[in-house]
Design a binder for these strands. Structure first.
Lengths: 159, 159
DNA sequence: ATAAAACCTCAACCCAAGTTGAGGTCAAGC
DNA sequence: GCTTGACCTCAACTTGGGTTGAGGTTTTAT
């Protein structure tokens, strides 16, 4: 630690520590076009403090299972260095909000299904939604679709 | 399709089609000890119909981002071939239910945070929870922890 | 002035979760 | 009795998301 005043630029180590990531991950994200840095005369990376927000968003989104490619796409709406303006950010955020809501709904449906299973001894084939593929799914070929409810079937190749 | 009466044993192709998976995935799951089959005199696999439930559970859990290793662990509580009894199943299910609740809570926290961002123009560093790592996280070294709220810090090696 | 810590690039490796393909066998219909 | 499709094994490949290590440079602290 060299000082307590907020530095205007972050070294890789600082950025990594503050984002809770490894330096190699920062390199990786940069190669993948998710973040941006500039160099010192001695060729070392420096990051704008704004990178921390990007990293926060990246980490968070990843945590949700959103692949980096998709994160990059959403983030590409924001200028790589400039602080994003309100509109841009709002667009990204509301896009993700929808995504999030969908995921929440899906998990909630599943949890409810699981609740049913726990409570009712529904192993009797006819009621348990987790058991159901057995009886119903043969009709359209995909299993466990009760939890998808609107997702694309994703034909896995064989039949 | 050879007949409409429910067969007692499923061929790989049937099982795959009804579970919405590929045959190669079934092989893979079997190698990994998640499912079980027996062989015909001619060395071809046959699956008990109960495998469909297992596959449903596997697929569903995977959908939640639960890694196969963990799924295997939970499923190992169930006899590989016998229909699981109520208690066993309830144990597994309620375990997962908790997992699910946690994930839902996390996603919901994130969505709310995002909502705040959209509504309030909180790009001003001081309020936005997605922006916050910048200001707060330096205090304990991990970023974006507002959304973790209880997760382990997971020191990534450097500093 | 020098030693240590942090940094650089590049290539190779790791894991998970499968898929793909080669080369061969089994089973069903005509 | 033969062709066709489903099946078998085994090894290699794929993608995503990084990590590790070698070999060399820059920056910082004393």
């Amino acid at each position: 630690m060299k000082s307590n005043i907020l530095p205007k630029a972050l070294t890789p180590g600082q950025a990594a520590a503050r984002a809770g990531l490894s330096v190699s991950a920062l390199h990786f994200y940069e190669r993948e076009g998710l973040i941006h840095s500039w160099r010192t005369p001695g060729n070392q990376r420096r990051y704008d403090r704004a990178v921390l927000r990007r990293l926060g968003v990246i980490k968070t989104a990843q945590n949700l299972g959103i692949p980096l490619a998709e994160i990059r796409e959403k983030l590409s709406a924001l200028h790589p260095e400039d602080p994003p303006n309100k509109e841009q950010w709002a667009d990204v955020a509301s896009d993700w909000r929808e995504d999030l809501s969908e995921r929440i709904a899906k998990l909630t449906r599943l949890r409810d299904a699981l609740d049913g299973c726990i409570g009712c001894g529904c192993l009797s084939v006819s009621k348990c939604p987790l058991y159901n593929p057995d009886d119903k799914a043969a009709q359209h070929g995909t299993g466990a679709c009760y939890v998808e409810s609107g997702g694309e079937p994703r034909d896995p190749g064989s039949a």
